[in-house]
Design a protein around this nucleic acid. Structure first.
Length: 661
RNA sequence: GCGCUCAUAGCUCAGCUGGAUAGAGCAACGGACUUCUAAUCCGUAGGUCGGAGGUUCGAAUCCUCCUGGGCGUGCCA
């Protein structure tokens, strides 16, 4: 059920006489912003009047158009308002018919797209062997939601977790295993032990990097200090007009100084932490070239070194186990988890093909693709012969193109990589990979409450698992407090409580993330997310539970409700009923908008609006005490279908519902 | 330096290919519980949409410039 499409078809028929581009004008149909203007509005009369150049004003054009329109089978007579808006209101009978049709439909009235072409979605893509952190939330949650939504719309969706399983982090683990590892301990408890080795070596590498960066950081501070004093001198000499500008420059310079000092402090802290540690201190002393040695272990792996390959083969499954635990908890699945290593054998073919095509050329010993629209080239082979992620991405792209017959390939990746994708897509174009829509579904950064990228006090990224635990704990505190629990009959078991806390806690994090437009940065505030009031998942989940309870109290099955509707009919007796049904009819619109913008926040918005419309309905339209059978069955039908829609909508966001809370 | 991106209510954020009086939540204030769970609902107050021009019948939305953030910028991913 997509009312704008329905209206557009009718407008197309009527517009034929006025223009040879009826699609363009028919597309100008919107839901109204204010119910007093009806349900939908067509805004095409104004631009059309201008285009016709016949001297008629927009209202006259609107009137002529309305005269041609055939809408009386599902709309009230159209009204012309303001400068030439055509306001449309759906018949009540159309809405009740729609409700009847959608009742008990597990597609909630949403059309199924018919296509053989797939949509490939590349998302999550963490580096294995590193613990997952807050930065992985967005790609995982947005990608999963898009996959669920597009699949529900009917597209064959192929999800691929492009794991970082071939990079430096394996050099780190291999180095750690060789120098600090105890084979027996690792064998007994691989997941935690490998994570421990990663942490130790990574800390030592960071330590070396910090030491090396000190001179530069100190220099940076001197520079910053100089700019501050320069700016201050300028400010003193400035005329009145320039004074404001000059004092701003002082403030800016001072901010830069603070940042530079912060960088130095954190480097010094890193160094001090290692040196003061009884275990790490001596290790740091012993492994003075660890930063380059780690890279050498990685290079050895890439060259096919037997020992490193066998270690890699041994470690990889354990690393995957670790991240799979997280996916299980988040309820995220992938069709494929090829990972970078899968493409390793194809890389030399990619580079030679690019050379043959004359796209790649040597520059300072590196193989580069120069693109006219970019300053910097895309480097596909380093001086030392190693390949880069650009090379892997090209191989991946070619593989997906030939293997999956895609109409679209979506990359759910951080905005910071947009230049990389711009280049990648440009090269793909030259490479002959046309007829596929390549989209960088970029997203912003998760910020802490201070507006800075979210970090722990020590400067490291916050672990994903602890974040989830915190959210679930908080959800449990709020949802399962003794005062509330006392009101439930039968009482909640410990299992049920755990279940609810998990659904509400994890749901809160996903919902909060998805509620922001993906391209914006947002501030992570656990208290607000898990709060039971406001625009939260709990609000929607709670609405669902309330509906469930009504059906339980009514003691009817959904099939019985359908029978009641057949027997007693449907009739609206309250504005809240009509509003809610109208809102429910718009489900497909919300989903297609998600597809058009690759932005799940439209679905979130839809669910909040729907839950709100339900709360209003719930306030003034008592179901069980309804005066007549017709009213009662209408309201029961609304409850059944609203429950179905909210449940489905949350499911498409990857969020669970619970029968009561 | 160059490139990308952002700036909307006290706070956190929406605002769909330009459309009617710019919305929601939180916070503030005032109401509504003999309840199908008040984890709710209704109302009030709160905005020169960073600034200045331009295009248009019409601009938060498109273009230019300015201011101020964030990010990226040849061998990491």
């Amino acid at each position: 059920m997509h009312v704008p499409h329905l209206l557009q078809q009718r407008f197309m028929d009527a517009l034929g006489e006025f223009t040879d581009q009826p699609e363009q004008y028919a597309a100008m149909i919107r839901a109204t912003s204010d119910p007093k203007h009806g349900d939908y509005q067509a805004n095409c009369a104004m631009p059309l009047a201008k285009r016709l150049d016949s001297g008629q004003n927009p209202r006259e054009v609107a009137a002529m158009l309305v005269a041609k329109l055939k809408l009386d089978d599902f709309c009230e007579p159209a009204e012309i308002a303001g400068p030439g808006f055509i306001n449309l209101k759906l018949n009540d009978s159309f809405l009740t018919d729609s409700l009847r049709e959608m009742l008990g439909d597990d597609r909630c009235g949403v059309h199924q797209v018919q296509t053989d072409k797939s949509i490939v979605i590349d998302f999550s893509s963490p580096n294995v062997a590193k613990p997952m952190h807050v930065g992985h939330i967005r790609s995982t949650v947005i990608g999963d939601s898009l996959a669920r939504t597009l699949r529900f719309l009917g597209y064959p969706v192929v999800t691929d977790n492009h794991l970082g399983d071939w990079g430096t982090q394996f050099g780190i683990i291999i180095y750690g295993y060789k120098h600090f590892g105890d084979p027996e301990v690792v064998e007994a408890n691989p997941v935690t032990e490998l994570a421990k080795l990663y942490r130790i070596v990574n800390q030592l590498v960071e330590y070396r990097k910090a030491i090396k960066s000190l001179p530069k950081l100190k220099l940076g501070i001197e520079d910053a200090k100089q700019s501050v004093s320069q700016a201050k001198t300028d400010a003193q000499n400035a005329e009145d007009k320039q004074l404001k500008k000059a004092s701003k420059a002082v403030a800016a310079a001072e901010r830069r100084l603070i940042v530079a000092q912060g960088n130095l402090t954190s480097a010094e802290e890193k160094i001090a932490t290692v040196e003061q540690d009884v275990d790490l201190g001596p290790k740091a002393e012993e492994h003075r070239t660890i930063d380059t040695d780690v890279l050498e272990e990685t290079a050895r792996l890439h060259r096919g070194d037997e020992e490193n390959m066998s270690l890699w083969n041994r470690f990889l499954p354990h690393c995957k186990d670790e991240i799979n635990r997280m996916y299980q908890r988040l309820d995220v699945q992938f069709d494929h988890t090829f990972g970078e290593s899968f493409y390793h054998p194809m890389l030399s073919k990619v580079t030679s093909k690019l050379e043959e095509l004359g796209l790649a050329s040597d520059s300072d010993g590196a193989l580069c693709v120069f693109l006219p629209e970019f300053d910097a080239p895309m480097i596909i082979r380093k001086q030392d012969g190693a390949y880069l992620y650009a090379t892997t991405d090209l191989a991946t792209l070619e593989y997906r193109f030939t293997e999956f017959n895609p109409s679209e390939i979506l990359y759910v990746v951080d905005s910071r990589q947009s230049e990389h994708f711009d280049k990648l897509f440009a090269v793909a174009d030259h490479f002959g990979l046309k007829d596929v829509k390549l989209v960088h579904v970029n997203f912003g950064t998760v910020l802490g409450e201070d507006g800075r990228p979210m970090k722990t006090r020590s400067g490291s990224l916050i672990g994903l698992e602890s974040l989830l635990n915190d959210a679930v704990d908080r959800a449990k505190q709020l949802v399962c407090n003794p005062e509330r629990l006392a009101t439930f009959d039968p009482p909640m078991t410990a299992d049920e409580q755990e279940n609810i806390a998990e659904a509400v806690g994890i749901g809160a994090i996903k919902f909060a993330d998805l509620s922001h437009h993906r391209t914006s940065d947002y501030r992570f505030n656990l208290d607000k997310m898990v709060d039971l009031e406001g625009n939260t998942s709990a609000y929607v989940q709670y609405s669902y539970a309330r509906m469930q309870k009504i059906l339980q109290n009514a003691n009817v099955t959904e099939e019985q409700v359908a029978d009641m509707v057949t027997k007693h009919g449907l009739e609206f007796t309250h504005a809240a009923e009509r509003n809610l049904v109208l809102q429910l009819v718009k489900f497909e619109e919300a989903l297609t908008t998600v597809h058009n913008d690759y932005a799940p926040n439209h679905l979130v918005d839809y669910l909040l609006k729907t839950a709100k419309a339900y709360s209003r309905f719930n306030q003034c339209c008592h179901v069980l005490k309804a005066e007549t059978d017709a009213i009662r069955s209408t309201r029961l039908a609304i409850v059944v279908h609203c429950k179905q829609t909210l449940g489905k909508g949350l499911n498409l966001l990857g969020i669970d519902v619970v029968p009561r809370m």
